Simulated scan of single mutants.
Amino acid sequence: MSGLDEILNLIETQQQQGEELILKAAKSKAAAIKAEGDKKAQTAYEDFMHRSKEQTEKDYENACNSADAEMKRRILACKVGLIDEAIEKTVAKLKALPDNEYFQLIIKLAERHSQPEKGVLSLCSKDLARVPADFESKLNESINKKGGSITLSKEAADIEDGFILSYGLISENCSFRAIIESEKDEIRDTAARALFGR
């Protein structure tokens, strides 16, 4: 083999060794880049899954809280509706009482709202037409305990039921609806206890 062939073989061998070294270095670098990429991808995946899990748990908790609040709101609205319905039925029953019981109730309410002075009691036109003959005397018999007296007005009051009790310039609306409005919270509490046992 001539010297030229040896040189060419040497160059070829060196070139092959250089190529192998370059390929080996490139493969090593590619493996390192891939390993680093895999590690970053795994970290990103774990971070995403962790954040997703936390967000899912928060969304679930918020959904549960929202559903719970909505359920409580609906239950409360239903209870208020039932209480209001019970109050309306009570007012209807009071209006439908037989005359004797109705006017006994008026006397009790008048005694409760009376003052120890002279007053005037005005009934609605429907009640004024059916008032018992001894109503005013029974009313005053009850009111005298407080040291006052009440005269029954011949003029009808502009109310549906109950009465208006006047002392001079001061008048108190004692219609059933007005009494319920003035004592609404207490009436609702009593109705709630009776209906729901709370």
Rank of each mutant, 00 (worst) to 15 (best):
M1W: 07
L4N: 01
E6L: 03
E6C: 03
I7R: 08
L8V: 10
I11K: 01
T13E: 12
Q15M: 15
Q16F: 08
G18S: 08
E20C: 03
E20M: 06
L21T: 02
L21R: 04
I22H: 04
A25N: 13
A26C: 14
K27N: 13
K29L: 15
A32G: 13
I33V: 11
A35P: 06
A35Y: 04
A35V: 06
E36K: 06
G37S: 04
K39G: 10
T43L: 07
T43K: 05
T43Y: 13
D47Q: 09
F48I: 10
R51N: 13
R51Y: 09
S52G: 04
E54M: 08
Q55H: 07
T56F: 06
E57M: 05
K58W: 14
D59M: 12
S66L: 15
A67K: 10
E70N: 14
E70M: 12
K72D: 11
R73K: 13
R74D: 10
I75V: 15
K79W: 01
K79F: 04
K79P: 00
G81C: 06
G81R: 06
I83D: 06
D84E: 06
D84S: 08
D84C: 03
D84N: 11
E85K: 11
E85D: 07
A86L: 00
I87K: 05
E88Y: 03
K89I: 15
K89G: 15
A92M: 12
A92Q: 02
K93V: 00
K93P: 01
K95D: 09
A96Q: 06
L97A: 10
L97D: 15
P98A: 14
P98Q: 11
E101M: 10
E101V: 07
Y102D: 10
L105Y: 15
I106S: 00
I107T: 01
K108P: 00
S114D: 09
Q115I: 03
P116C: 05
E117V: 14
K118S: 10
K118H: 12
V120W: 10
L121C: 04
L121G: 03
L123E: 02
L123R: 03
L123D: 05
S125Q: 05
R130A: 09
V131A: 03
V131Y: 00
D134T: 00
D134A: 01
E136N: 06
E136H: 08
S137G: 00
K138R: 15
L139E: 02
L139S: 04
S142P: 00
S142A: 11
I143Q: 08
I143Y: 12
N144A: 14
K145Q: 14
K145E: 14
G147A: 13
S149F: 09
I150G: 05
T151L: 09
T151S: 12
T151A: 08
L152M: 08
L152Q: 05
S153M: 02
K154T: 12
A156V: 05
A157W: 00
E160N: 08
E160G: 05
D161K: 01
D161A: 01
G162H: 14
G162Q: 12
F163L: 00
L165G: 02
Y167D: 12
L169D: 09
S171T: 08
N173H: 02
C174A: 07
C174M: 06
C174K: 03
S175D: 05
S175F: 01
R177A: 13
A178D: 09
A178V: 05
A178P: 02
E181T: 03
K184R: 07
D185C: 15
E186P: 11
E186F: 02
I187P: 02
I187H: 07
T190F: 06
A191Y: 02
A191H: 00
A192Q: 03
F196D: 14
